[in-house]
């Protein structure tokens, strides 16, 4: 299946009574509710992509989602499947406890950059080392969003944040962490990719990556992780449209997109 043929709309819906055909609807795996996300935030897009993939895989009734501490802390309310909320950074450990005791379930974590790459570094590293059959969605918007835009491990060099007011100085504050490339080196990781949401084409590629990260789990190949370059216009202090440009112009040079690991079994179709 090529990227262009991935269905993003419901195509198999039956004709309605008045002869019109339903061509677009909310995924069943998404809850019918409003989110609290800021205008221009891309969490909503990622939620929808996850829900579409879960619907297409037909696994909604087997899903357990483990949400982070961060802006997505309420995400379990935005999905129509079982969910919980881990302590900051601990989602991979919690998900391990769930998956190991209920191996027939499909378990994923949803984690921000501070959650996974800072406080939760050891938990994700250990889960990858063990090759846990989990899917990890890693939302990288270069700042701690919920606490008001502090420097994250993924903040690009030079970027001004509320805790790096003179710009991130790599001499003092270190270099941005390229977590996904690091994890891709581990044998337990079956799929590792970095994608972006700054254009429609990239959104479609992101969906394909999320699908493969779930496939990796469902086929029992290992852990699948997708890092998604995402926006935070509120804390970046720019408008939503400029935020998309910020991903392309500032984040992508630091964080090149790509698939860093694809298990042979995932290449078969």
């Amino acid at each position: 299946m090529t990227i262009d043929t991935i269905p993003t709309q419901t195509t198999s819906a039956p004709p309605t009574l008045d002869g019109m055909q339903l061509v677009y609807q909310a995924p069943e795996a998404l809850a019918e509710t409003q989110t609290h996300y800021c205008p221009g935030c891309t969490h909503g897009i990622i939620h929808r992509l996850i829900a579409e993939v879960i619907d297409e895989l037909g696994v909604r009734e087997r899903i357990i989602g483990v949400m982070p501490v961060g802006c997505a802390v309420f995400a379990y309310d935005y999905f129509n499947f079982d969910g919980t909320e881990a302590a900051h950074g601990r989602a991979p450990a919690m998900a391990t406890g769930i998956k190991r005791t209920m191996p027939d379930k499909v378990v994923f974590t949803y984690q921000g950059d501070g959650d996974i790459a800072s406080i939760g570094g050891n938990e994700i590293l250990a889960a990858c080392a063990r090759g846990e059959k989990l899917t990890v969605i890693f939302v990288n918007n270069a700042v701690f969003g919920m606490t008001g835009g502090q420097m994250a491990p993924t903040t690009p060099a030079g970027m001004v944040t509320t805790s790096s007011p003179y710009g991130r100085n790599v001499e003092l504050q270190g270099s941005p962490i390229h977590l996904t490339e690091m994890l891709a080196m581990m044998p337990g990781v079956a799929y590792a990719a970095r994608r972006s949401l700054h254009s429609v084409a990239e959104i479609r590629r992101t969906k394909k990556a999320i699908r493969l990260a779930f496939d990796a789990q469902i086929k029992g190949l290992g852990l699948g992780i997708v890092e998604v370059l995402s926006t935070c216009p509120t804390n970046w202090r720019i408008d939503p449209s400029e935020a998309m440009d910020f991903i392309r112009d500032i984040m992508m040079p630091e964080y090149p997109l790509g698939e860093f690991k694809i298990h042979e079994e995932l290449k078969k179709h």
Binding site: I64, T84, A86, R90, A93, M94, G97, R100, N122, E123
Partner: peptide, 14 residues
């Protein structure tokens, strides 16, 4: 131990 107790937390939720 941090990992262990959070694995316990996950399994307990199940």
């Amino acid at each position: 131990e941090i990992g262990a107790i959070n694995m316990v937390y996950g399994a307990a939720c199940a």
